[in-house]
Amino acid sequence: MGLWVLAAAAGMTLPDAHAEKLATYVVEPTPVADEIVADATIESTRQTSIAAQISGRITGLYVKAGDRVNAGQRLLAVDQRAADQQLAAVRAQAAAARAELDVARRELERTQYLFDKQYVSQAALDRAKARYQSASSMAQARLADAGAAAVGPTLHNIAAPYAGTIASVDVELGSMAMPGMPLITLFDPGALRAVATVPQARAAALRPDLPVRIELPDVSGAQHWQTATSVTILPVADSLSASVQVRLSLPASAGVVARPGMYARAHFLVGAPRPRLMVPLAAVVRRTEVTAVYVVASNGSATLRQVRLGETRADRVEVLAGLSTGERIALDPLAATNKR
């Protein structure tokens, strides 16, 4: 290792056997704009936690996490008997409320007649009116409950409100569901966004009018990079982290590879492009404290030269010192090493 470092520092020239076969890259200035890189998290703008409306045992579970479902597709079923019992109870309450309203109406009519004959006081008439109004409100509420409960199949057969992907199933077959209890979480993969956290000190430099690229580090291929379809800079800052959140809408096609909760990086352009010497990351050799590239001379010989690097952009990195315009470097350092 010590001999390797000394050789690198001395700029030792490797034997040029087969060096002409090395794939090379010509170093040329490339216009590259300044940018702010911020960590981000993928979120769904359309995510729903489906809860139970009635109590009962789960008698059918037709989906699992990760399944794609259509709008109206049946997700799970709650015991029909529980739904029937609840419907009967609600209808009984509605019938009692109607009876109470009928009694209050007749009492009001009688009190109004007696008041007109000056047999009762104004206070008695006011009490009769108040009782009638209370009974009327109660009856309306009970009738509304009965109307909702009458759609029994929608209560015990729960369906997807829209097409999407099942994020989680929070119950098991045979478990007990209670009103308001979360059962299934559903999200729309076509409505995703990246929420980036930008330091407050740099937020003023953001340019929403310029394209924002979103990097998905865990995704390979053409979809590794996405371009935001809209940019929203939230007007408030987090006092604890001294940062500002930026919401970046993703194209619908990103839902094929991106998922809520996934880590991402947002690249914000903040200035006009300026020429820089950019080289492929694959051409860089890193050994202990030495960072170098193999420079290929016109005669085919390869020389290891130490360089100083700057910012990394996608699969390229800026060279601040050690290379000049027009020089050629080996794209495969291992091949250059093996062909000494």
Rank of each mutant, 00 (worst) to 15 (best):
L281Q: 14
R287L: 14
L248N: 06
V120I: 03
S239H: 02
S49E: 12
K129H: 03
A297P: 02
S175W: 01
Q245R: 15
A203F: 02
L248S: 08
A292G: 15
V246M: 14
A128F: 11
S324W: 05
Q80W: 04
T288I: 07
R259F: 01
G261S: 07
Q80L: 10
V5F: 12
P273D: 04
A150C: 01
L173D: 01
V293C: 14
V319T: 11
E318P: 03
L250F: 06
R110M: 05
A266F: 08
A258M: 02
E43K: 04
A17F: 13
A33Q: 04
S175R: 13
L250V: 04
R308F: 04
V246P: 11
A330S: 15
L277H: 01
A23E: 14
N70Q: 12
M181C: 01
D209V: 10
S243D: 05
G147W: 05
A123H: 11
L269I: 15
Q200C: 00
D34C: 06
E318M: 06
A33R: 10
S168C: 08
P333Y: 11
A149W: 10
K64R: 14
D67G: 04
A194C: 08
V212P: 12
P161E: 07
T48C: 01
L281R: 15
D126V: 06
M12W: 10
E20D: 09
V257Y: 09
P29S: 10
A292Y: 12
Q133M: 09
T337H: 13
G174T: 06
P31Y: 07
R328Q: 15
S136M: 11
L234S: 05
L155S: 05
L331N: 07
Y162R: 08
S55Q: 12
V236G: 11
A336Q: 07
V257H: 09
P161F: 01
L173K: 05
R274A: 14
I158F: 03
T337E: 15
A177H: 10
S241C: 00
S121R: 09
D315I: 04
R202D: 13
A160Q: 12
